[in-house]
Lab assay of single mutants.
Amino acid sequence: KELVLALYDYQEKSPREVTMKKGDILTLLNSTNKDWWKVEVNGRQGAVPAAYVKKL
């Protein structure tokens, strides 16, 4: 499985998103959308802005 690093804090704004903190390591589930990537963090799945994460 592919991992990404959170470059910034992000507070979810809808139920389809997830909150992450700078430095979090997230499991990347889907990166086909260039703006929003689906990730899993702390057992929750949701979208985060692609510009806020970097593939490891």
Rank of each mutant, 00 (worst) to 15 (best):
I25P: 00
A6Y: 01
G46C: 05
P15W: 10
K55E: 08
D24M: 13
W37T: 03
D9K: 02
R16W: 15
N42I: 04
D9C: 05
K38V: 15
L5N: 01
N42T: 05
L7R: 04
V4H: 02
G23N: 06
Q11T: 14
A6N: 01
D35R: 12
Y52T: 10
K55I: 14
N42P: 05
E40S: 09
K54F: 08
R16S: 14
Y10L: 01
V39Y: 00
L5D: 00
L3C: 14
L29I: 14
D35T: 13
K13A: 11
K13P: 05
R16E: 14
E40G: 05
G43M: 05
R16A: 14
L28H: 01
Q11G: 08
V41Q: 10
K34S: 13
Q11K: 12
K1W: 12
G46Q: 03
G23Y: 04
M20R: 01
R16F: 15
K55V: 13
K22L: 05
A50I: 04
T19V: 04
R44K: 12
V39F: 00
Q45F: 09
P15M: 10
L7Q: 04
A6R: 00
V53H: 02
A51V: 09
K55R: 13
L29E: 03
V4S: 03
P15I: 11
A47V: 15
M20V: 11
I25Q: 04
L3T: 09
R44D: 03
V39C: 03
V4R: 01
L5S: 04
D24Y: 04
D9S: 08
I25F: 06
P15L: 10
V48H: 01
T27Q: 10
A47L: 15
K22W: 03
L7A: 04
E40A: 08
K22N: 03
G46R: 04
A50G: 05
K21F: 10
D9Q: 02
T32E: 14
Y8C: 15
Y52I: 10
K21D: 03
L26I: 08
E17R: 05
K54E: 14
Q11N: 14
Y52L: 15
M20T: 03
K13W: 05
D35W: 15
D24V: 04
W36E: 05
N30E: 15
K13I: 07
V48M: 01
V4A: 13
T32H: 12
Q11R: 10
T19C: 05
T32W: 09
K34Y: 08
W36L: 04
L56E: 04
Q45G: 07
R44V: 10
A51N: 13
V4E: 01
T19G: 09
K54Q: 14
V4N: 01
P15G: 10
D9P: 06
K22H: 07
A6M: 04
T19A: 07
K38L: 15
S31G: 12
M20H: 00
Y10E: 01
A50F: 02
V53D: 03
K22M: 08
W37N: 01
D24G: 03
E12C: 14
I25T: 06
V18H: 03
L28V: 07
L56A: 05
S14N: 13
W37H: 02
N42C: 12
K55P: 11
D24K: 02
N33W: 06
A47F: 15
N33S: 11
S14D: 10
V39K: 00
S14E: 08
L3F: 14
L5R: 09
A47P: 02
Y52F: 13
A47N: 15
V39T: 00
L28N: 00
Q11W: 13
K55D: 05
G46P: 00
K55A: 09
E12T: 09
D24F: 04
K38C: 15
K55F: 11
E40P: 00
K13T: 13
E40K: 06
K34D: 12
W36R: 02
Y10P: 00
A50W: 00
E2T: 13
T32P: 04
K21N: 09
V53A: 02
S14L: 07
T27I: 15
D35K: 12
L26C: 10
V53L: 15
R16I: 12
P15R: 09
K38S: 13
A47K: 14
K34H: 12
L3D: 03
A50T: 06
P49K: 04
E17I: 04
D35M: 13
D35G: 08
P49S: 01
Q11Y: 14
T32L: 11
M20Q: 01
T32A: 12
K34N: 11
S31D: 15
K55H: 10
G43T: 05
A6P: 00
K21Y: 09
K34V: 11
I25L: 09
V53Y: 01
Y10R: 01
E17A: 06
K21G: 04
V4M: 05
G46A: 06
N30F: 06
E40I: 09
G43F: 05
G23H: 04
N33G: 12
Y8G: 06
Y10N: 01
E17L: 06
G23F: 05
Y52P: 04
W36N: 02
V41W: 08
N33M: 09
N42S: 09
S14Y: 06
K21S: 09
A47I: 15
A51F: 09
Y52V: 09
G43H: 06
K54D: 09
V48L: 03
Y52K: 10
I25R: 05
K34A: 13
W37A: 05
A47D: 15
L5V: 15
A51H: 13
K38T: 15
S31R: 09
A51L: 10
R44W: 05
D35Y: 15
V39N: 00
K34L: 10
L56D: 02
A6S: 06
P49H: 03
V18C: 07
Y52G: 09
Y8T: 08
K38A: 12
V39A: 02
V41F: 14
L3P: 03
K13S: 11
K34T: 11
S31E: 15
K38H: 15
A50H: 03
K38I: 15
V18Y: 04
L28T: 00
N33L: 08
